[in-house]
Nucleic acid binder design. Structure first.
Length: 311
DNA sequence: TATCCAAGGTAAGTT
DNA sequence: AACTTACCTTGGATA
């Protein structure tokens, strides 16, 4: 599977067009595992300044945004977001990195809580991402009981072994595998990629999507809690992973994935929100974090705590 | 050097 | 419906 593409075009998005933005925080905060740093320092040092590092990925066609596969590289400079891509990626980057969000308005709309204030101050400019749904679903199935650097490594291996190889300007890029490509994998082969007990989950979920039995994108048409229930039909997907897909791919900004870090934050800062069940605790913390944009608050708090910001 | 532990949880079995 | 337990693998902590 190899395809020859055109060469890379180049361009830039002026900073003044997008408002507050932090590319490193956006792409290394554990929301997306689908980008790479060609300098090999992805997740190397949580707090080290990413400076003007390049990030790159291969994006599948996305309905209403781009009708073809795009190889895109991006980096943040002082006065612009520079890009290199196989076709003009500005609408695509706007979609993937939520450059169309009015971040100041969103942060202003969240409640005045000390923990949120500190997280927002530390990483102001971080955006939520809009990952392609299938890749996002697989990424977070892999995330169970795993460290972020290893989740990222798994996705790299999946792309390398099962995705299309694209050559651009003499360099090779690996697209994330399609449902068909991943459904054809065997459990033992996926275990060799160090997926562990997640291997059969990934294969069977890919098969469900490939067969047309269900598709993560279909959850976008449902109300929030119904959408979460819909996603849990996939193998290896419980409430937490479902919330991640809703938040990081399908635009449900109210979703608050209850991971270990947020559960710690609830225990330490918002004990009244612990209602026993996922469903009720989720409702409580969602309300505590301001409702419609609670997912933004969750993601800032997650990154802040995981990066040791509380220390 | 050996052992233990936890990492962005979920499925399957029990009560 | 709530509660247990097993599950792959590995880097870093502890003895």
């Amino acid at each position: 599977m190899e395809r020859e593409s055109a060469t890379l075009e180049t361009g830039a998005i002026p900073r003044s067009d997008v408002g507050p933005f932090d590319l490193q925080a956006t792409l290394e905060s554990g929301q997306s595992y689908l980008w790479d740093r060609p300098d090999g320092r992805m997740y190397d040092s949580l707090s080290a300044h990413g400076g003007d590092a390049w990030y790159e990925t291969v994006v599948p066609p996305i309905d209403g945004v781009s009708d073809e596969q795009v190889v895109v590289r991006v980096r943040q400079c002082d006065d612009a977001i520079e890009w290199e891509a196989t076709t003009d990626p500005v609408p695509l980057l706007t979609h993937l990195l939520r450059l169309d969000d009015d971040l100041d308005a969103i942060l202003d709309a969240t409640p005045d809580l000390p923990l949120l204030e500190r997280a927002y101050d530390r990483y102001r400019g971080m955006r939520l991402v809009r990952d392609p749904p299938f890749a996002c679903l697989i990424s977070f199935i892999c995330s169970a009981q795993m460290r972020v650097a290893r989740i990222h490594e798994m996705q790299r291996r999946l792309a390398h072994d099962y995705g299309e190889t694209v050559s651009v300007d003499g360099r090779q890029y690996h697209a994330f595998p399609t449902p068909d490509q991943l459904a054809a994998a065997t459990e033992s082969a996926l275990r060799e990629l160090k997926l562990g007990y997640r291997a059969p989950y990934v294969q069977r979920t890919a098969e469900m999507v490939a067969d047309g039995e269900a598709h993560p994108a279909r959850a976008a048409d449902l109300d929030y809690e119904a959408a979460r229930d819909y996603l849990t039909q996939f193998v290896g997907v419980g409430d937490k992973v479902a919330d991640c897909v809703l938040l990081f791919s399908l635009g449900f900004l109210e979703a608050v994935p209850l991971d270990t870090w947020i559960q710690t934050a609830i225990a330490d800062h918002y004990p009244d929100c612990d209602r026993g069940s996922y469903r009720e605790t989720s409702r409580a913390i969602r309300e505590q974090f301001g409702g419609a944009y609670a997912g933004y608050a969750q993601t800032y708090v997650f990154y802040y705590l995981r990066a040791g910001g509380a220390a």
